[in-house]
C-alpha cells in the first residue's frame, strides 16, 4: 500500500516536472492529503492552524520542487520538508520544546491521508494582491487565468523569460509572506 502510493506519487511528480499539469495537480492533491494527515495528528491543540500550514508547505514544495532527486523516494523527500516546516512553525510560535520536539519518526513517514480540507484562516488571494504589480500580473494571467507564457508575454509586453521570472519570484515572495503571516 505504501509502496503503491510511493510509486504512484513518484510518477505523478516526475510527469508534473516534465510539464504535465494534470499529473502535477494530482500529485499536489495527494500530497496535501498526506500533509493534512501529518499536521492534524501533530497539531491537536491547534486544529485551526492545520490548513494554513498545509497551504504554506504546498507553495514551498512547489517552489523547491527541483530539489526532488528522482533517485530518492518522494515520500521521504516530502516527509523531510513536512517535518522541517513543523519545527519551523513551532519555532516561530515559540512553542516550548519546539526545538527539541521528537519528530524524528522516520519510520512513520507521511502515512495517513486526510481529504477533509478545513478553511484556511489566511487568504492567499489577499496575499497575492499585495505582491509587486509585475509579479502579481504574471501570476494572475498565467497561474489563475491560465494563459500560456507566450500569451501573457504578448498581453503585458514583458518578455517570456521575464514572465517566468516574475511568476517564480512572486511565488517565492508569497511563500515568505505565508511564513511570516501568523
Amino acid at each position: 500500500m505504501l509502496q503503491e502510493r510511493e510509486s504512484a506519487m513518484r510518477a505523478l511528480l516526475i510527469d508534473g516536472c516534465a510539464g504535465n499539469q494534470i499529473a502535477y495537480a494530482k500529485f499536489l492533491t495527494e500530497l496535501s492529503a498526506l500533509l493534512r494527515g501529518f499536521y492534524r495528528k501533530r497539531l491537536m491543540s491547534m486544529p485551526d492552524e492545520v490548513e494554513d500550514l498545509v497551504q504554506e508547505v504546498l507553495i514551498a514544495i512547489h517552489n523547491q520542487r527541483h530539489t526532488y532527486d528522482a533517485a530518492q523516494p518522494v515520500t521521504a523527500w516530502a516527509h523531510a520538508i513536512a517535518r522541517f516546516k513543523l519545527v519551523d512553525f513551532f519555532r516561530r510560535r515559540q512553542v516550548r520544546g519546539g526545538d527539541h520536539l521528537d519528530i524524528d519518526d522516520v519510520e512513520e513517514e507521511l502515512a495517513s491521508e486526510d481529504h477533509n480540507a478545513a478553511d484556511a484562516k489566511r487568504d492567499v488571494t489577499t496575499l497575492l494582491a499585495d505582491l509587486p504589480p509585475k509579479q502579481r500580473e504574471a501570476i494572475e494571467l498565467v497561474k489563475i487565468e491560465g494563459l500560456s507564457i507566450t500569451e501573457a508575454a504578448a498581453k503585458t509586453g514583458q518578455s517570456e523569460s521575464l514572465i517566468k521570472v516574475n511568476i517564480h519570484r512572486g511565488l517565492k515572495a508569497l511563500a515568505v509572506r505565508m511564513r511570516e503571516f501568523a
Binding site: A25, T29, V54, L58, A120, V124, K143, I144
Partner: peptide, 16 residues
C-alpha cells in the same frame, strides 16, 4: 483561497 484552488493555481501552466 481554498486548498484545492491553490493546487489548481500551482499546477496551471509552467510546471516544467
Amino acid at each position: 483561497m481554498k486548498t484545492e484552488n491553490l493546487i489548481e493555481m500551482l499546477a496551471r501552466q509552467d510546471t516544467r
